[in-house]
């Protein structure tokens, strides 16, 4: 989808977050060189078009105690993957769920889900529950817990030629 110049600028500015001050949209507008109303309209439009799927507080789950972050991958026959994916996504403890392309000879898995929890033991129990619930016991699968989280940025989707400076210590939004 084609974005307007203003939407590009707004997306780039938002990588640093909405200012935390009175009239934050006016502050944002000032740094782009437009009006507060234009910024709010552009944001509404991005949400209405479904390009922004969430606008709000983006947390650092690790810092908040969600240290057990499991990426579960499965090799599901192509004709079944959507059905199983939808049922997987409906489980309350699954935070992300998607189908991805396999890497031939390297990575046969095509269905991914993430479970974020405070304790590995609980996450492992949830994974067992999921596998049993969806009948995936005999499906090739792997669980990859995260060990360390290295520096993270907000996604760079805008076309602006210069990368915005990411504040030091900027770190989260688990994949």
């Amino acid at each position: 989808m084609e974005l307007t110049a203003l939407q590009h600028q707004l997306i780039e500015e938002l990588r640093n977050g909405l200012p935390i001050c009175s009239h934050p949209y006016r502050t944002l507008a000032d740094s782009i060189g437009t009006s507060e109303a234009d910024v709010m309209n552009a944001l509404h439009q991005l949400m209405q078009d479904g390009l922004i799927n969430r606008f709000g507080a983006i947390l650092r789950h690790r810092a908040l105690g969600y240290q057990a972050n499991a990426m579960c991958v499965f090799d599901i026959p192509d004709q079944d993957v959507r059905d199983i994916g939808k049922r997987m996504a409906a489980l309350s403890y699954v935070t992300l769920c998607y189908q991805r392309e396999r890497v031939p000879g390297i990575w046969p898995f095509n269905l991914y889900c993430m479970i974020h929890g405070r304790e590995k033991m609980i996450v492992r129990a949830q994974i067992r529950h999921m596998v049993a619930q969806l009948g995936l016991t005999d499906v090739p699968q792997k669980v990859l817990f995260s060990k360390r989280c290295f520096a993270q940025h907000a996604g760079k989707y805008s076309l602006s030629p210069t990368s915005s400076v990411i504040p030091a210590g900027e770190q989260h939004e688990p994949a």
Partner: peptide, 15 residues
């Protein structure tokens, strides 16, 4: 360090 930012996440594949 609990809050990364108040901001947006985008629809993968749409943008």
């Amino acid at each position: 360090g609990y809050l990364a930012r108040i901001g947006a996440t985008y629809a993968t594949g749409r943008i």
